[in-house]
Simulated scan of single mutants.
Amino acid sequence: MLYKDIHIGQFIKERVTDKEITMERICNFLGKDEDFIEKVYTSKSIDTDLLLRWSKLLEYDFFRLYSSHLILYSPPAAVNKNEAQKTEKVPYFRKNIYTQEIKDFIINKILSGEMTHSEIIQEYLIPKSTLHRWLQKIRRNNDK
């Protein structure tokens, strides 16, 4: 799965179908009518408070889709990160969240020969030790 173009309504609709949740339950949980729910399914983006409620109802972290997008497609960070961290009022997260899909995507690029280790490290800013740990785990699983 590529995270470049996220259509959140489609992801929500797929999850509703997978979980087999009735329209009545959705409407009651969200306090909305069926027309509103259908509009969500066709929306490319929705309000974050509403997305949080969908995440709870469907037991799925839809925000990870956006985190994955940031990890894969955000521009390189500024050189002087430490200074910016001291002045920010929003929480700072020390580690990136790498979903299994992101790991598979990156490992696939290496195994297919599309990119080298150093290209992955430079392009996606994944620490060398993290990348090597992923590859070791793949090798161990293949040896079994």
Rank of each mutant, 00 (worst) to 15 (best):
E83A: 05
T42L: 15
P76W: 01
S129V: 15
I71A: 08
I46S: 06
F36T: 13
I46C: 05
K39V: 10
E24N: 14
A77R: 06
K13L: 02
Q85L: 13
S55K: 07
N142Q: 14
I107Y: 04
S129Q: 13
H69S: 07
N80H: 05
E34H: 15
M115F: 13
E101I: 03
S129N: 12
K56G: 02
M1W: 09
V16D: 11
D143I: 08
D35Q: 10
F11M: 11
N28T: 14
T116N: 03
K4R: 10
D143M: 12
R94E: 15
V16T: 10
T99L: 11
R15L: 14
C27W: 00
F62K: 07
A78G: 07
R140D: 15
I106V: 12
N141G: 00
Y124I: 10
M1S: 10
H117Q: 14
E20W: 06
K19I: 10
Q136I: 10
I46Q: 07
D61E: 02
G31R: 02
T17F: 12
G9C: 04
I71M: 03
K32S: 11
E114D: 09
Y66I: 08
K39R: 11
R140K: 13
L52D: 13
I6F: 08
Y73T: 00
Y124M: 08
M115A: 12
I126P: 02
F29Y: 15
E119Y: 05
V40C: 14
N142S: 12
H7G: 02
Y92A: 09
F93A: 06
S129P: 05
K13G: 01
E20F: 11
L72C: 11
S74T: 05
N141W: 00
T22E: 11
Y66L: 01
I6Q: 08
N28F: 15
T22N: 04
I102E: 01
M115D: 01
K109Y: 13
I21P: 03
T22W: 00
Y73P: 02
P127W: 05
L50C: 02
F105C: 00
L72K: 07
S118R: 10
D61R: 00
Q10M: 13
I97N: 06
Y60P: 00
T116E: 03
L57W: 08
Y92P: 00
Q100D: 13
D61P: 03
V16S: 10
E114P: 08
D143E: 15
D33G: 14
S118L: 09
C27G: 02
I138S: 02
I126E: 07
I107M: 08
L131E: 05
S45H: 08
S74H: 02
R94T: 14
